Deep mutational scan, measured.
Amino acid sequence: EALDLGTCKAKKKNGEPCTQTVNLRDCEYCQYHVQAQYKKLSAKR
């Protein structure tokens, strides 16, 4: 099993862990959760 392949560390809205696979060398979170957090933070400017 590849060491750099894993699952997203974020949690879904219902509290369950996200099940998307990610490349851990790039980021610990999937694209969906990265974009969601970016939108959330950019709205606070």
Rank of each mutant, 00 (worst) to 15 (best):
N14G: 05
A2S: 07
C18R: 01
D26R: 09
L3A: 09
D4V: 04
Y29V: 08
R25G: 08
T21Y: 15
Y29Q: 12
Q20Y: 03
L3M: 13
P17L: 06
R25T: 05
Y29N: 06
A2F: 05
E1W: 00
A36K: 08
C30R: 02
T21L: 08
V34K: 13
C30I: 00
Q37I: 03
A10Y: 09
T21H: 11
C30Q: 01
R25A: 11
G15L: 05
Q37T: 08
T7F: 13
V34W: 10
E16S: 15
Q37W: 06
K12L: 09
P17M: 04
E28T: 05
K11P: 12
V34F: 07
L24T: 08
L3P: 01
K12W: 06
L41S: 13
Q31C: 04
L3I: 13
R25M: 09
A10P: 00
E28Q: 14
A10H: 09
C18N: 00
A43L: 00
A10K: 00
L3W: 04
E28A: 12
C18Y: 00
G6W: 02
Y32A: 15
Q31E: 13
E16F: 00
P17R: 12
A2N: 10
C8Q: 04
Q31R: 12
K12S: 11
Q35C: 06
D4K: 12
L24Y: 05
A43C: 13
Q35A: 14
D4T: 15
C8I: 01
V22Q: 08
S42C: 07
C30F: 00
Y32W: 11
V22M: 04
V34A: 07
C8G: 01
E1G: 06
T21D: 09
Y29I: 08
K11D: 09
K11V: 08
L5Q: 09
C27F: 04
K13T: 11
A43V: 06
C8M: 00
Y38M: 13
E16L: 04
Q31H: 08
K39E: 14
L5Y: 12
Y29G: 04
Y29F: 09
L5A: 09
R25C: 02
A43G: 11
T19Y: 07
H33W: 00
L41C: 10
C30L: 00
C30E: 02
G6K: 14
K13C: 02
T7I: 08
K39L: 00
K9I: 06
L41K: 09
K11R: 14
P17D: 11
R25E: 09
L24A: 14
R25D: 07
E28L: 07
Q37S: 14
V34S: 12
L3Y: 05
R25K: 13
L5K: 09
C27R: 05
L3Q: 12
A36E: 13
T19P: 13
Y38G: 15
E1M: 02
